[in-house]
Every structure is written in structure tokens, then in C-alpha cells.
């Protein structure tokens, strides 16, 4: 087991390294050199100035040299500065990551609470009206464009009904004027619409998945044996069926974290939610390469670690997998 974990860890790190190099090179292909633009704004910037500036920043070197320098800094914890905000990357990124975590974890937990019971429930009454209706909704959930859903939710619930705030993470300027409970309540209010947008896809997907796995499990011989033994049906379902069906479901959930994190980019952008996903998007548009690189790599790393965790969990839960 330990050898397996180590091997997978090494693999993950290699992937992260490769990914960071490729994205570093790709960012170099993005339009507009920030230095050229800065130089253009300054009427006294001469070609010599520009060369000097490039040399000072090491931009005259080939991309792999620059990449290793960047990596060196990254490894030693020196993420550098954001060009747009002129602040250390960590100052900006960490609160944003925490915000994204709030959003993702809430969506994840909510999706689990809704999807799994629904999936199990409907799998026990296959081909009923309820099953069909739920299936329809699940399909709609997978097929709806999330940004469009977000727009519609804003129009209906924020503008027309005015139940929930249209965007942001909290009401600004209330600190010190309201109690902690009210602050938490305010934050939850702001989470409702983005979480709904983000969760719909995963809920829809997991309901279908749980249902399918549950149906599959209930056909296995050991279930028949359990029934034949005269065990009560509820015991058959929950002790034997559910336990085995949940093994693959659990890993899919761990993977779901990755899709939620990824989907958060669009959700955060539409809801002006200050998260890491929006930061990646904004910094790319603002030519803030370092910011974009760091937030992208750290986000990807978190997602890859979750994937690794999913694999390990699966290996641990399913005795049929060997760790070689």
C-alpha cells in the first residue's frame, strides 16, 4: 500500500510539473507582452531601456530557463508579486482560495446530501412515475448550460423576487455593526445562488450514478443469497446493497470535487464571487501572468490531489484492487 501511494504521489507531482511547464509556455504565447505595453505608456522609454528592463527581469532568456527560475521561486515559497495589484501573490490568492473552498465544499456537501438518498430511493422503485420524473430532471441538470442557469437565477431570485443577493460574497460595510450570527447568515444568503448553479450538475450526475450502481448491486448473487436467507428487506438493502454500491459512488464523489472546482470558474465569474477561479480568469485578461500561473497551478494541484485521494480511497475500499 505504501509503495502504491508513493508511486501515485510521484506520478501526480510529475503531472503537476509538466502541466506547470506547458501552461508557463502557453502563457508566453498569450497576446501582448506586459513590458512592451508598460514601455509604450512611457514616452521616455527607449529600446535600450526596454532591453535593460527585459534583462533585469531575465526575459531575454529562453523559456525553459525562465521556467526553472520561476519554479525555484515557487518551490521556496516566493510566489512573487501580482502585476495588477502590486501585492504578494499569497496575499491575494489565499483569501480567494478560501472563498472558493467555501463555495465548493458547500456544493459538494449539499450535492451528497441530496443526490445519494434520492438515487437510492429511486433505485428501489425503478420504472415508476417518480423514477421517470427524477430521471428527466437529472438529464436536464446535466444538459443545462451553467452560465445560462446562473443568469436566469439572478434575474428570477435576485432582481424580480429579491430573495437572494445578485452577486458577491457578503454585504459590504456591515462589519462591526451586526452580530457574528448575522454575518454568517449574510454569507449563506450570498452562497445560495452560486451553490445552486454549481450543485445542479453534480446532483444530477450522482443521482443517476447512485441509481445505476444500486440497481447493479441489487442484482448480485449475494443479495439474492441474503434475501433467500430470509433477512428483512431493509437489512438487505442497507447492510448489503447500499454498502457495496457506495464504494464506486464514494470515489466518484471525490472526483466530483474536481469538476466542482473547475465549474466554479464560470459560476464565480457570473456571480462576481471572489474566488480562485475568477482570479485565474481575471488575471489572464489583465495580463497578470504570474498571478494567473500561481493560481492555476495551485488550483490544479489541489484538484490532482483530490483525484489521487479518490484513487487511494477506491483502492482501500475495494478489496478486489491490488496495490501493485
Amino acid at each position: 500500500m505504501t509503495a502504491y501511494i508513493i508511486r501515485r504521489l510521484i506520478q501526480t507531482i510529475i503531472v503537476v510539473l509538466l502541466l506547470s511547464f506547458v501552461s508557463y509556455a502557453l502563457m508566453g504565447l498569450m497576446p501582448g507582452d506586459p513590458l512592451d505595453i508598460a514601455c509604450q505608456a512611457n514616452p521616455h522609454c527607449t529600446p535600450e531601456n526596454l532591453d535593460q528592463m527585459k534583462k533585469a527581469l531575465g526575459l531575454d532568456q529562453p523559456v525553459y530557463v525562465r521556467y526553472f527560475k520561476w519554479l525555484q521561486g515557487f518551490m521556496t515559497g516566493d510566489l512573487g508579486y501580482s502585476r495588477t495589484y502590486r501585492l504578494p501573490i499569497t496575499d491575494i490568492l489565499i483569501p480567494r482560495l478560501i472563498n472558493t473552498l467555501y463555495l465548493s465544499v458547500t456544493s459538494l456537501v449539499l450535492s451528497i446530501i441530496i443526490a445519494i438518498p434520492l438515487g437510492v430511493f429511486t433505485s428501489l422503485r425503478p420504472n415508476t412515475k417518480f423514477d421517470y420524473t427524477l430521471n428527466m430532471f437529472a438529464f436536464a441538470g446535466i444538459s443545462i448550460p451553467s452560465f445560462w442557469l446562473a443568469l436566469m437565477l439572478i434575474i428570477i431570485f435576485a432582481v424580480k423576487l429579491q430573495i437572494f443577493p445578485a452577486s458577491g460574497i457578503e454585504t459590504i460595510g456591515l462589519e462591526g455593526e451586526i452580530s457574528t450570527f448575522e454575518i454568517v447568515w449574510d454569507r449563506i444568503n450570498h452562497l445560495v445562488l452560486p451553490v445552486t448553479t454549481l450543485s445542479l450538475l453534480t446532483v444530477a450526475f450522482w443521482v443517476r450514478y447512485t441509481r445505476a450502481k444500486m440497481l447493479e448491486t441489487m442484482r448480485f448473487d449475494y443479495i439474492r443469497t441474503a434475501r433467500a436467507k430470509g433477512l428483512p428487506e431493509s437489512r438487505v438493502i442497507y447492510m448489503h446493497g447500499l454498502r457495496n454500491a457506495l464504494i464506486p459512488v464514494v470515489t466518484v464523489i471525490a472526483l466530483g470535487f474536481s469538476s466542482i472546482f473547475s465549474g466554479a470558474v464560470i459560476t464565480e465569474t457570473v456571480f462576481a464571487y471572489l474566488g480562485a477561479g475568477k482570479l485565474i480568469f481575471d488575471s489572464i485578461f489583465a495580463n497578470d501572468y504570474n498571478m494567473a500561473m500561481c493560481s492555476f497551478i495551485i488550483t490544479s494541484f489541489m484538484v490532482l490531489m483530490m483525484n489521487l485521494f479518490a484513487d487511494l480511497l477506491y483502492a482501500y475500499l475495494d478489496p478486489r484492487i491490488s496495490y501493485t
Binding site: 504565447l29 501582448g32 474536481s258 485565474i280 489572464i284 492555476f296 484538484v303
Partner: peptide
Amino acid sequence: LALPLIPVLIIMASVD
């Protein structure tokens, strides 16, 4: 398969 798709797509799509 493991990459966070949307951010990767954004980076790819913004290449000049």
C-alpha cells in the same frame, strides 16, 4: 482526465 477542465480551456483559448 484529471485536470480542472475549464481553467485549462481558458488558458488554451486565450493563446494568441
